[in-house]
Design a protein around this nucleic acid. Structure first.
Lengths: 191, 191
DNA sequence: GATATAAATGTCACAAGTGTCACATTTTTT
DNA sequence: AAAAAATGTGACACTTGTGACATTTATATC
């Protein structure tokens, strides 16, 4: 399938179930960003701009433009713990990636662009709290963070104040973590 | 990547997400400057003319043709060392960013997308060798890596085998490092 | 709750730009 | 030198931009 990066005013009209005339008016009035072809000035809209427009107006986003699978990044220096968690995540049908150190975590946060990160607080070579703050400082505000730790309630509370969306004690209950993951990802959709 | 100076009408069509036929019509009508090959008159467009055309019509400019500052990422857990290095880099006119741990390094490698990374091998919470391998494994093949370390020649050699483009002893000579940086960045341009 | 007013959207027709197709020819690659 | 890929061209179908006007929707006012 040919995935184009640019849409015409007519396509916008169809996606929004509106007349061509109306789509053009949106562009004229600056609601929808577009540029004109040199010929007669036919409009072209970049997909990213279209999605911004849809979000701005809380309009439904057509499936074609829905972001891909839900992706979860598992950050844990203990590979066996990470793999156990990955089995749960796979059973929920989400895509995932495991990283075991800070560098990979940062790299994959940007490259893999997950909707959710599970973060172990107690790692020898990486400070979970710092990672948490960086994530929030770096503009990944939409990325949900689920903190997992055996460091006690105080640490979990601190994590929440630093921006964690949820925090669970280790060892965790499988059903409980499933619930939390689905809740966090669900919240992301309904905004 | 091969950076050509001249484009064909078909390439214009792809970049603008338009039919070949349309791109040719733009040329015919004088919107887009081009010249013809002697054969049957196949069109060739100079990149500069294409960019003028895009700007003229306020069309988005493909990333490939964006002029971006040269960016350097400084990875060193010792902020004072990093700042000293940043002064040198600034004097050379490059843009830079300083990170002091692995997580930030990974994040900025992907987000800042630097042409060059200066990497300290000896960091308490981060293994420079591992970072080096990850960079190469992660497909950042075009990113030059300059290793800085006081760990001795053996470590520097090891770094080179792991993919470092250059390695310098600490403390380094200011003029020497300037030379190396410019050499590494120069190589990248001349395809 | 009903009415008045303004703003947005739909409809229609026409002119002009763009897409599609087939084919000959040129460029590029092997 | 031969094969593969890309290009230019013409004819024709389809889409788009525009203006004018009818209709619907939202907001304010009584």
């Amino acid at each position: 399938m040919k995935q184009r990066k640019v849409l015409t005013s007519g396509e916008i009209a169809k996606y929004c179930d509106v007349t061509l005339r109306t789509a053009i008016r949106w562009i004229e009035r600056g609601h929808l960003k577009a540029y004109k072809l040199p010929g007669r000035g036919n409009n072209r809209i970049q997909v990213a701009d279209f999605i911004d427009f849809l979000k701005e107006n809380k309009m439904p986003i057509p499936e074609k433009f829905q972001e891909q699978n839900t992706r979860i990044l598992i950050v844990d220096d203990d590979l066996s713990v990470a793999k156990a968690l990955s089995r749960i995540i796979r059973s929920l049908g989400y895509e995932y990636k495991i990283v075991t150190d800070g560098f990979q975590a940062g790299l994959e946060l940007a490259k893999f662009n997950p909707q959710l990160i599970t973060l172990d607080l107690m790692m020898p070579k990486m400070n979970g709290f710092e990672v948490l703050s960086y994530i929030r400082q770096s503009g990944f505000t939409a990325t949900k963070v689920l903190v997992l730790s055996s460091a006690g309630n105080e640490a979990l509370e601190k994590a929440k104040t630093l921006g964690a969306d949820a925090a669970l004690d280790k060892p965790y209950d499988n059903n409980e973590i499933k619930e939390v993951i689905q809740r966090l990802l669900g919240d992301g959709n309904s905004d």
